[in-house]
């Protein structure tokens, strides 16, 4: 980044619909990480969804409306951060494409796109934090979600951060970069194909013989966790933010409540 970073940048947290609705712990972990990194964080209540389901189904007019709402809600912040490569990528890479024939909105979309980041990229490449040093005695494997990996080039950053987690040993799967078969609505529209892809992913994860699966996108993680439990595995599945923020005392994704809580 060429511009100077404000000393205590004001970050708008775009928590993403999946985290908001199904796994608030990821939101709180994100909040903690951002604050640890010296950011002042706000959570606008007007946020809903980034519009990706509509966008990937070809409904551009609804996507445009939702995008406008996101732009209006978040453009005042220094940065917009989302704990998801797919939603982050939607705002930073795809919003522009929606306003080709509308100069004013195109400009506003571009402005927002330039300051929107996926959480790990933001912590690693923008803020360059050195405040990550949690504890987690476990072995883990990392799933590279497609948009994060191929749209936002997230590959080494999460692994570098995980090196600072005391007690955590990372074991790479052979197919960590292969799609897990989630694909948003794809997984419900084409369940058989999705299952086939998912089983390959799960097989690869199982052969790492680690205790934990980590990733940066809740959609993929819910997909993977749901199949793991369906196949009788009790492997712990978590969003990387939970581990980096040292917030792993609650149950993993799709895991039962801990009785002592």
């Amino acid at each position: 980044m060429s511009e100077a970073i404000p000393t205590s940048p004001h970050v708008g947290l775009f928590v993403t619909c999946l985290v908001d609705l199904t796994r608030p712990s990821v939101g709180f972990a994100t909040l903690k990480l951002l604050e640890l990194a010296g950011c002042q964080v706000s959570v606008p209540v007007m946020q809903t969804c980034c519009g990706q389901p509509a966008y990937n189904s070809g409904d551009r007019s609804d996507t445009r409306d939702i995008a406008k709402q996101v732009i209006e809600t978040f453009e005042e912040f220094d940065y917009i951060v989302a704990p998801s490569g797919s939603c982050g990528g939607m705002i930073s890479h795809h919003y522009l494409d929606l306003f080709k024939d509308d100069d004013t909105w195109e400009k506003r979309a571009k402005n927002l796109a330039n300051k929107t980041f996926e959480l790990i990229v933001f912590l690693s490449d923008v803020i360059k934090t050195n405040k990550i040093n949690g504890q987690c005695k476990t072995t883990a494997t990392y799933h590279d979600s497609c948009s994060g990996l191929r749209e936002l080039s997230i590959k080494d950053q999460p692994r570098e951060f995980l090196k600072n987690i005391n007690g955590l040993k990372l074991v790479e799967g052979k197919k960590s970069e292969v799609c897990c078969g989630f694909g948003g609505l794809f997984c419900v529209k084409y369940p058989d194909i999705s299952e086939k892809m998912l089983d390959e992913k799960v097989d690869d994860i199982l052969q790492t013989e680690t205790e934990m699966v980590l990733g940066g996108d809740l959609g993929c993680l819910m997909n993977i966790a749901g199949r793991l439990t369906r196949r009788g595995s009790e492997k712990e599945v978590r969003h990387i933010a939970e581990v980096l923020a040292d917030m792993t005392h609650g149950p993993g994704i799709a895991a039962p409540e801990k009785t002592e809580a």
Binding site: P24, V45, M222
Partner: peptide
């Protein structure tokens, strides 16, 4: 039909955050 649905924690992040919760993320 193919996988379990991971159960939501119960309250949404936005609800919790705006009622003042800040990060006990034990799943309670």
């Amino acid at each position: 039909s193919k996988r379990d649905f991971p159960a939501p924690m119960g309250n949404t992040f936005i609800q919790q955050y705006h009622k003042g919760a800040r990060g006990d993320t034990s799943g309670r």
